[in-house]
Design a protein around this nucleic acid. Structure first.
Lengths: 174, 174
DNA sequence: ACATTCATGTAAGTAGTTACATGATTCT
DNA sequence: AGAATCATGTAACTACTTACATGAATGT
């Protein structure tokens, strides 16, 4: 149940409305912890009920700005220091690799070559994103940058691997 | 809904029972597509109802061996060639990196240093696994090996990144 | 005889997705 | 006046997890 902690963690940066959080989840967290609008608003209501956050301001159009309470901050810290990160799992792309044996040689080749292409592009997109952001020297900026670097390395690794994988494919039948 | 395809994909390698599949998911697919016993049996029943697989043999202790039907094989191929792999998402470890600003410098340092350690160990475990398996030259073995190589590279990348991240941390307060 | 492994199934709960529904404010 | 953006909420569904429940066959 890490959406709860994702929301709390973002509110630790400062007060925000559901709509504000939605933008954060769309921009910074899209590749880290995807969340839908419906999920975010539901979670905010629940968090407010349990007292981990509270409505600190109300604006136009029914806007509600939430602030982390002391209990909420303590919970973020507890989560970070006393619980272990769940290992990444569910890799659709890799699952498919396991099944490539059912395809014709050429189709399997296309699949891997497509992956390589996709990863190259995804890496380039991140590099672009990196240059478009003015990086500050506050912690959120620094850790955000560290996370982005992970993405760049991840895509580079995938790209190299896909290229290598093509050289490892079984020879065409017949 | 890729569990469906994971099951179909594994049955494409040959007939298997729910119990057999459970072992495969525990051994080979644990880091690619985790699935519980309850999920697998439920999915097998549904797949049999829709005619993508069928019971091809019954053994002792109520064992039911399932075989992919022609429709099932076609579905695996369609999935592999006509649908796109979903990009990897939900990275608990990275989500936490975004939140490290709420911790004391030393605690954040410990977190990253823990990650480095964990990744080193995970990589070593995979290398061990690799040597413990007798690799064949059939497609499943080859593609399985390609997938395992991904894991090795993934952990190596994470390890390097965590090491680098430690050098990028904001200086300790005061 | 007892433990382990093989073998399946269901129920209840949590998390996540998609779709629906509404309306105020701001900008051009 | 109309479009875009801001802003929230709910309902129905799908996917996944945890726990419960049972029992046959095999190995020691």
């Amino acid at each position: 149940m890490s959406l709860r902690h994702a929301v709390l963690g973002m509110l630790a940066e400062g007060p925000a409305s559901g709509y504000d959080l939605l933008q954060i989840f769309k921009d910074s967290l899209a590749n880290v912890w995807p969340a839908t609008q419906s999920q975010i608003y539901t979670e905010l209501t629940k968090l407010a009920e349990t007292g981990l956050i509270e409505v600190s301001d109300e604006g136009p159009r029914g806007r509600k700005e939430y602030t982390l309470t002391a209990a909420g901050l303590a919970e973020v810290r507890r989560w970070l220091t006393e619980t272990e990160p769940k290992p990444v799992a569910r890799n659709d792309m890799l699952l498919r690799v396991f099944c490539l044996g059912v395809l014709e040689h050429d189709q399997a080749h296309d699949y891997l070559s497509d992956i390589e292409d996709r990863m190259t592009k995804a890496g380039a997109r991140l590099t672009e994103l990196e240059t478009s952001i003015e990086w500050d020297d506050d912690p959120f900026s620094i850790y955000g940058h560290i996370a982005l670097e992970w993405g760049k390395r991840f895509y580079a690794m995938n790209q190299d691997w896909a290229q290598w994988a093509l050289t490892q494919m079984p020879p065409p039948k017949r």
